[in-house]
Write a protein that binds this DNA or RNA. Structure first.
Lengths: 241, 241
DNA sequence: CGAACAATTGACTTTAGTCAAAGAAAGTGG
DNA sequence: CCACTTTCTTTGACTAAAGTCAATTGTTCG
């Protein structure tokens, strides 16, 4: 285990065959770093910024706000994830961000990405793989919100998060730090904060998983996976070359 | 209006600056055509097929089935849309398809796509733009299912569909052919067929939109857009170069 | 200490789902 | 062309899930 690697490098290493040039370019891509404090809302909806980020450290989420003030979180981003990749290509960004903890990001712009495509196509494919995986995650959330009940949905989400974190070296899938509030969790899962609170209690009382004090601890992952029908194919870690 | 153009060409033409070589490549990409009859389920979940399609004619949908037998439709595909683009990069395809009408598709494989990236990068960017737009649509569905009530959600979906079809020359946004059954609509919107039936009645009685006999006709688009908070930025048609 | 926010719980309401039943439309084999 | 099945649509009556309102307890932080 080489803890000096950044999260995205870790993640892409599931992708075999990246050579030294790819790795160098990947480092270079993450050169323009900056820090953002927790709780900062980066409102991009409707903005014409062709900028995306790599989240290097910390947690964030992407969301859309509706006119009635309610908020739907599209996905939680953890280290190694992209922020706002779509805005590189779409004219106007379609969503905003919120930093959940203090974060460190690396800025990407369209020009740099095109350069990656030109000069290190292998890395480009790896990045597109990561983007596809993010997209598959969003699709799974859609399915979850559309067709799973609150109880299964919550357990499923926590299982998924554990797997995603494990891939970048945080936690072991069955226990991991999770600095998100119940109201963020509620907005991610399409329910109210009050309801998620009750659901979390049920999960705790059913001895499946405990969400408390910034930690998630599964007591019975097998049953959790069973109840929710969780399978990790959609996150699948090792794309063949 | 040049009706001889295929739907994808029409759609990408919103993307300025494609040259003759790009156009030729775009035609070439659609060379491997085949027909599939209506009602065919193409089950890909868990399959390792690195194949995607361009939908040239007809309607289809992508969906995931849960263990309890229920189904969540991820998106409806209309002419000019991609089918299964993610499976070009992910190891295992994460969803399946259903043809809603008879369709004509053109097969894509990873190798051909990589060739596009190498030889006509301009077209590659245009295709990635289209893919980003599809993704933005999925995100909007997520938001809709998570945070809009059934009435607004349904109206929103029908508005969106109208805009998408207009872009490829089908209908005018306020009236268009729509060959999908109520049960498909229900599974796309995360509700039951019975409930969508009631909602469609309400929309009809409120003189907002009529969904009947394979046609959608808005009677009051302004009010519909107003009620649902519909804006088409997320579909935005003309990306700047 | 008090302010602001997060978590918790109870009582009640609303929304959407379930069950049951029929009518309508569309395709099939004779 | 007609009986016959199958699928789609529609409606009513009832149930279950999740939201709303209201209030309380912690917690963090200046």
């Amino acid at each position: 285990m080489n803890d000096t690697r950044d999260a995205l490098t870790r993640k892409l290493q599931a992708f075999k065959g990246l050579g030294p040039e790819d790795m160098a370019m990947l480092q270079d891509l993450q050169r323009l770093r900056s820090q953002i404090p927790a709780g900062k809302e980066v409102v991009y909806e409707g903005q014409h910024s062709h900028t995306a980020y790599i989240l290097r450290q910390g947690w964030a989420c992407s969301y859309k706000r509706l006119r009635d003030g309610s908020r739907q979180i599209i996905d939680i981003q953890v280290p190694g994830d992209f922020l706002g990749l779509r805005s590189l290509l779409l004219r106007a960004s379609d969503h905003s961000f919120l930093t959940i903890t203090d974060v460190e990001v690396a800025r990407l712009d369209r020009h740099r990405m095109l350069e990656v495509f030109r000069r290190t196509p292998r890395l480009a494919v790896a990045l597109m793989w990561a983007a596809s995986r993010d997209e598959a995650t969003v699709v799974e959330h859609l399915v979850s919100i559309g067709r799973r009940g609150a109880f299964e949905r919550t357990a499923h989400f926590l299982l998924e998060l554990g797997e995603r974190l494990k891939l970048v070296g945080i936690g072991n899938g069955s226990a991991y730090p999770c600095p998100i509030s119940q109201s963020i969790l509620a907005d991610a899962l399409g329910m109210t904060a009050i309801h998620i609170n009750r659901v979390l209690r049920q999960l705790r009382e059913a001895r499946i998983v405990v969400f408390r004090d910034g930690m998630v601890e599964f007591q019975d992952m097998k049953r959790a996976a069973d109840i929710t029908g969780f399978e990790l194919t959609y996150l699948d870690q090792s794309p063949e070359s």
